[in-house]
Design a protein around this nucleic acid. Structure first.
Lengths: 240, 240
DNA sequence: AACCTCAATAAATCAGATCTTTACCCGGAT
DNA sequence: ATCCGGGTAAAGATCTGATTTATTGAGGTT
């Protein structure tokens, strides 16, 4: 898991600035001067500029003559940029980011399931049922890591099978949510047996071409996940 | 509508390269050399590099030493980047992009409606009902442009009211879809009266805090839109 | 064929100069 | 005191040439 940027000096600067901004260390409205950044990171102008340009393209800063590089308000950020998602997941905003992504999943995945029922290739159907079997096996044995891996394969395959490139590109995001859930927000030691059943239902419905059933079963999956996460949050906020 | 990039030389180069790549003129696998690009656009290295860096951050190219700048496969693109969406909407891929976005809407907007029912502020509720009234007025009078404007306000407000930043940031995208629908894929001269009714239902359910009703009505809206679009496509492909 | 060496290549980085925009200061007019 | 216009300097934007670094592919060795 986790491929980072540090490819090249500029990537490193970009990453460090991105973390500083998403974490709030560099608050919106703050003005940075390029010369200042050169010194801060010990690199040349070109490297700083390239990092700034990328940040600008993500809506995180805006650069104006005679004033400098201003950190932008959250409202303008490209919140779907994988880098921003990664930074927020790695920092303080992790819980909020996970909540946002979970709510997004609740909308996206049922639709993807319905579309997949119409468009999935036989190979994708095979991968789906295969990963459900893996989930069942590792769910019983309690191997959470292997269970997670199969779960990720399932959801990623389903999103791909939707035949919608945009939905498909959310595979990484969903994988991050699933991983975050098991790694941080403690999943139950034994995964919900019902969840595995729903996954099986989805796989079956997709294979049968039953869009409505696939959508319904997927909605069950993702709603169960949301509830579990909300309960965890409540438990954290209210440790009775 | 439509704010473009051409802010600065580098933005112009970025835009031109983006269009060339999304249009397929520069196909995946093709290798560009920086020197070549300097000549092509008549700008200096720094400008080209900055544009390349942004393209790289969008996953559209990858730059490697000793080889050059390679146009990347579609699979790696950040399809949620507003710039890419814009380029595709402006070029040949417009129909496919609109289809992708419509399917995305079908998932996202009902969830946003359900969330908005729990989180919308009174002011947002007011904006919602107000825009519905505008839609009704201009729908009857047949002023499609004003109808569109009110429609956009409605959907944008609802997505904001979801209280989910990521869903909220899809407002621009949805606006683009709605605009594309009326400007290209000919909407009916008089908007479906049922659609206006469903919008009213959503506004009312949100105000009443009835998440299930809001979600259901919104699903009706977006499903009607999808069907209308599919029928248009069929009509274009099969001019009986 | 597998492996090592080495030189050519193109991007990556640095550094300095110049251009362009524009926020801000200041004097004059009303 | 307020408003307007010109001038100025600050800071980014762009250009350019030099230098560094990683990689590929050629060529030779075993």
């Amino acid at each position: 898991m986790g491929d980072n940027d540090p490819a090249g000096l500029h990537g490193s600067v970009l990453d460090r600035l991105g973390v500083a901004i998403t974490s709030g260390e560099l608050a919106p409205g703050l003005v940075l001067r390029i010369e200042q950044l050169e010194a801060r990171f010990g690199v040349s102008r070109s490297v700083v500029r390239e990092a700034i340009r990328v940040l600008e393209s993500m809506g995180m800063v805006s650069s104006r003559r005679r004033v400098g590089v201003t950190v932008a308000e959250r409202a303008g950020w490209n919140l779907f940029d994988p880098r921003i998602i990664g930074w927020r997941l790695a920092g303080d905003g992790r819980d909020e980011q996970l909540r946002s992504l979970s709510e997004l999943r609740r909308g996206v995945e049922p639709v993807a399931a319905a579309l997949a029922a119409r468009r999935a290739t036989p190979a994708q159907c095979g991968t789906l049922t295969g990963s459900v079997m893996q989930m069942a096996v590792h769910g019983r044995s309690g191997d959470l890591e292997a269970y997670l891996e199969a779960d990720i394969v399932f959801h990623r395959t389903l999103l791909e099978a939707s035949g919608n490139e945009m939905l498909g590109s959310l595979g990484d995001v969903v994988a991050a949510v699933l991983a975050g859930r098991t790694h941080h927000h403690l999943m139950p030691a034994r995964p919900e047996p019902a969840a595995i059943g729903w996954h099986a239902e989805v796989a079956q419905a997709v294979q049968a071409g039953d869009a409505a059933a696939a959508e319904r079963a997927m909605r069950d999956i993702v709603e169960e996940a949301t509830h579990a996460m909300l309960n965890d949050e409540r438990a954290i906020l209210d440790p009775s």
